[in-house]
Design a protein around this nucleic acid. Structure first.
Lengths: 223, 223
DNA sequence: CACTAATATTAGCCTAGTCTAATTATCCTC
DNA sequence: GAGGATAATTAGACTAGGCTAATATTAGTG
């Protein structure tokens, strides 16, 4: 039987947390991520466990099974293909596509995803720079990408990925001219945790708090 | 508050039945249309009535209000825009798009619809030949269209609309080469309720039962 | 090692939407 | 205008997913 969009949201949340923490995920973490109570999470964990999508060790935490991960990867693929379509063809700003894709990913068929991918010419990254899993659901080798905070003053880098989940952060980066593909000259790293950077299409430097810069990854310029 | 996809399905069903019968719609008709029991319909009618989307006269039937009709028209617009996108850009056959559009129409935002319409160059009819309501939700003047059964042997017509809801009927028409835009020579009308027609891209005549032909509309050729 | 804080689970209730069974209205025919 | 057929509504129960409150487990600290 098919999974409800709600059950799918739980799987996605668990997957995100697993990637972030690399250890079993606790009930309360899922509750915080989704915005429901721990009680609700406990009961959804039961159903997901019965369906073989995760392994639950009571009082310890959960881990996705292969089946669970596969469902999540399918969703991620649909999500990122949709985002690509929305920005590249429907003229959405990349800052605005996440919410629409988050809703639609649960409702487009596999057939739709396959055809959309063909229409888009099988893209490998989405507008935030995140990799799009292919039909076999394998994620392509990511190019070497490092958080902006790892570079030093004086270096020039290209923005590779920006965080896709927090609207305010996306808005902040957009307004300061930072998006995937932007070339950046790192002017200075101040003591109070601010990066001074100069985007390639700007004259003045822009201040980026470390808190945000940590989640922006970049690769060295190819020259 | 937003309406659930299920509530939206009820409104669509009522609208379809109103168009078909031009009179208040009874509980059991809605039940048959959607495939639920009359009891379920009764209770949904209550909620829809409370929201001001229809008027219910107990034991008599329901009629959509202006608000109710507006919601349906928005859904129809989304549905037909989606169908157009699926056939024109994702290479779906026009016989296969109805189901996907029926799911997605409940989940795409108004913003998405607006942008999709622009992307598609503001089409006025969908792949089945049905008119697409514009942003103001007015349906464009339909060209004069008459059921195939109203024409006489010897006439040449162009298929304007095919039924969009029944997959088997669509499949039948597709296999016999009848789709919107097909030019048709009406060879004969037999006694047992069969039309013999010759599509423009075929040599042999094709037999269409009156039962089906009644729901295919056509306009006279422009020559 | 015991106690407390934090977290997890269970119990029990709520809402939306479904069902079956029982009841009530309406209508049609005689 | 009475009787029966048909249709509509109501009553009561079920499921998914949510909540709060109560209970149980684990972990950390003294």
């Amino acid at each position: 039987m098919d999974l409800s969009p709600i059950a799918e949201e739980y799987l996605k949340a668990i997957s995100t947390l697993e990637t972030e923490h690399a250890r079993p995920i606790r009930t309360v973490e899922i509750a915080d991520e989704i915005g429901v109570t721990s009680a609700s999470v406990s009961s959804m964990i039961d159903t997901l466990d019965e369906r073989g999508l995760l392994e639950h060790t009571p009082y310890k935490g959960v881990e996705l099974t292969g089946d669970g991960e596969e469902i999540v990867t399918t969703l991620v693929r649909k999500h990122r293909l949709l985002e690509t379509f929305l920005t590249d063809h429907l003229d959405y700003r990349w800052t605005d596509v996440h919410e629409e894709a988050d809703r639609l990913e649960h409702h487009v068929s596999d057939e739709f995803a396959t055809r959309l991918a063909t229409f888009l010419d099988d893209p490998t990254t989405d507008p935030h720079g995140d990799p799009i899993p292919d039909t076999a659901l394998t994620v392509s080798e990511e190019s070497v990408q490092t958080p902006l905070t790892e570079y030093e003053a004086g270096e020039t880098v290209v923005v590779a990925q920006v965080p896709d989940r927090d609207h305010d952060v996306r808005e902040y980066l957009f307004e300061h001219g930072l998006e995937p593909g932007t070339e950046l000259y790192l002017e200075a790293v101040t003591a109070v945790g601010i990066l001074e950077v100069v985007p390639d299409d700007a004259d003045d430097s822009v201040s980026i708090p470390t808190k945000i810069a940590r989640h922006v990854s970049a690769r060295a310029t190819s020259r």
